[in-house]
Each structure stands twice: as C-alpha cells, then as structure tokens.
C-alpha cells in the first residue's frame, strides 16, 4: 500500500534527503545527503526502512496532512510535534490515520529535524540518490501546496516504538590530523584545542563558521595546491577564521585544513545552534578509526534498540476513554 501527504505550509529549507552519493567525488559532486547522518539512521531504524528518502527540516517545520493512513518517524533537532494538536513523542514511530494533521514547530534546540514516512518519499533520483543539493539543482526543495507521494510500505505495523536520544551534547568534538595539519605550528594546533569557538550565523549545508577572536591563518601565507575536500574538514581561509565543512561541501579547495572532524561527531557540529560553544580536541588516527568503527556498530544495532513506547497513565489526558476502549488495565504484556 502506498500513501501521500499534502504540504499545507513549511519552512524555506525543507528538503528531501537520504545518504547522498558515493563515487561522485571524481566528478565534483560531494557526498551530500542528510546533514545529521545519525538522525537519518534513527529514522530509518524506527521505520525499519534503511535507505529511504526522508524530509530534512532546517530550522523551521511545517504542517502536513496525511492523505491516506501511514506511519511517521521523527528524529534530530528538538521540534514540537503534534498530531491533530496532541503532543507526539519524537525519536519514535507512530501510526497516522487518513486526514490527520501533523504540525512540526520551529527548532527549539538543534538545526535539522528528520521526518520519515512509511514506504519512504518517492521523489526524483539522480545516480541512485533522492538527496537535494541546491547548488547542483538536484533533489527537491519542498513548498506549500505540494503533494508528497510515498512508496509501498513493507512493514506498516511497525509502530509505537522509540529510540533513546543518542545525540548527547557534551564534551569536545573529536578530530583527527589530516594532510595539512602539520603545516600549522604546534602552538596553533594547541591553541585550536584550547579555543571555545562559537557557531557563527554564517552557515548552511555546505558548512558553518567557527567564530573566535584568535586567527589560525598559516604563517607566511603558504600556498597549497587545490586538493580534495571532504565533509568534516576544518578549513582555514586566508583571514584565519575556521570553517567546518558539511555534507554539501565543495569537493576541492586550496585552503589549508587544520583537522578532520570524526564522521561520528559531525552530526553534533551540523546540529549546533547559532551562538553555541564548540570545543575540539585531537585524537590519533588509530583512536579515530576505533571510535568510528564502534559508532558504525552502534548504528547497525539501532533497529534492535527500538523499544515499545510505554505510556505513563499520568501523561494520558483522556485516561478514562483510553481504559474503556482498550478494556484492560492489567495488560497482558505487563
């Protein structure tokens, strides 16, 4: 069975995303895809639908009406979720009936929210990915009045599950040395680890400004031939103000890069609020590989980490009707 949604209104940066592209770097197209790959993996795990295309809502949410019964899952930024006005748990998968209206509020913390639907979004693909890359005119930027078609849902009964929030916001962002790290002096590298950076207002899916009074410009204005750039690179342009690169980064660049953020810590950087303090610390390449492998293992276990949503009776404002309809106070699962 397939379903569809009507977009009543939405923010200006609601796009279709999945894991993006692999193997297009040589043609100048970066990885792209969800800015927060962990939240994407969580939505996939909740729906039991790895690889499906989801909506990425940057900053502002929207109002969506279900044109048929379906399922939804939400993860990522802290946004107010309401189904027909009733608060809905995030990092969870729910059934939605035909005609029900989903309201997603503006982000209270974090930047990118992810809304997945049963069967996944059916939008045009380029080289296998439905991801939206604005610079390349790929994918789809969602607008009010649009109807979003979904694919066939293989597991329509997988609902009422939740995941613990893994997006902990503490500790320094871990980074590993990269090809240009040693062009920076020991003092500069140590200063980088001591600096409390502020996530600047300049930022989008290509990257975000890391603001500080300290300049990290290379001494003597050393020039570097343009080399491959990857998401997670922290580049330092001539003025010395670092920039952390995200999913839609350019694929080559001539600015030196002081470090590469661990892929598993990149979601925290992407989600950082404007004005939030970010600190960074170096780990060795070997440690970085171990952290990354452990993270991939944890992500692979997400499907099994989903647990039933247990409703606390005190949170149910229509407790009486709930009991009457279900006809059971002592459920058989207790």
């Amino acid at each position: 069975m397939t379903s569809s949604f009507y977009v009543e209104h939405c923010g200006p940066a609601v796009t279709v995303q999945d894991a993006g592209w692999r193997g297009t770097l040589a043609s100048g197209l970066s990885r792209g895809g969800a800015a927060d790959t962990l939240a994407l993996a969580q939505v996939w795990a909740l729906l039991g639908q790895e690889g499906s295309a989801v909506l990425e809502l940057a900053g502002l949410g929207g109002r969506f009406e279900a044109l048929s019964a379906t399922r939804i899952a939400f993860a990522g930024a802290n946004m107010d979720l309401r189904l027909d006005g009733e608060a809905l748990l995030d990092h969870a998968v729910h059934r939605v009936e035909v005609g029900q209206v989903l309201d997603i509020g503006a982000a209270r913390a974090g930047t990118y929210g992810y809304l997945g639907v049963g069967g996944g979004l059916e939008t045009p693909r380029f080289l296998g990915s439905a991801s939206t890359h604005r610079g390349a005119g790929l994918g789809q930027v969602i607008e009010a009045g649009q109807t979003l078609a979904c694919g066939a849902d293989a597991t329509p009964d997988r609902v009422g599950l939740k995941l613990p929030q893994m997006n902990a916001k503490s500790g320094a962002i871990r980074m590993v040395p990269t090809a240009h790290t040693l062009l920076f002096s020991k003092d500069q590298r140590e200063a980088f680890e001591r600096t409390a950076f502020t996530r600047g207002a300049r930022g989008n899916r290509q990257g975000i400004a890391l603001e500080t009074d300290v300049s990290f410009a290379l001494k003597g204005g050393q020039s570097i031939p343009s080399e491959t750039v990857i998401p997670g690179d922290i580049q330092v342009p001539g003025q010395g103000a670092p920039f952390a690169l995200l999913a839609d980064s350019q694929t080559t660049g001539g600015y030196p890069r002081i470090a590469a953020i661990l892929p598993c810590d990149l979601p925290r950087v992407a989600q950082a609020d404007v004005g939030e303090t970010l600190r960074f610390s170096f780990v060795s390449r070997e440690e970085g590989i171990a952290f990354e492998r452990a993270d991939r293992k944890a992500r692979a276990a997400l499907v099994k980490a989903c647990t039933p949503i247990l409703r606390n009776p005190a949170d149910i404002n229509d407790l009486l009707s709930y009991q009457l309809i279900s006809g059971a106070i002592s459920g058989e699962n207790e």
Binding site: V176, T178, A179, P225, E227, T228, I230, A260, P263, G288
Partner: peptide, 17 residues
Amino acid sequence: LRFVGVDGVLVRFGADV
C-alpha cells in the same frame, strides 16, 4: 602518502601543479 581523516588517503605527486 598522507592520511586524510579516518578513512582517507592522499597520494601526492608534487608540491605544485
């Protein structure tokens, strides 16, 4: 050969183009 991030390797053939 230089390492780039956790899973990248850069093989350089010169300092200039």
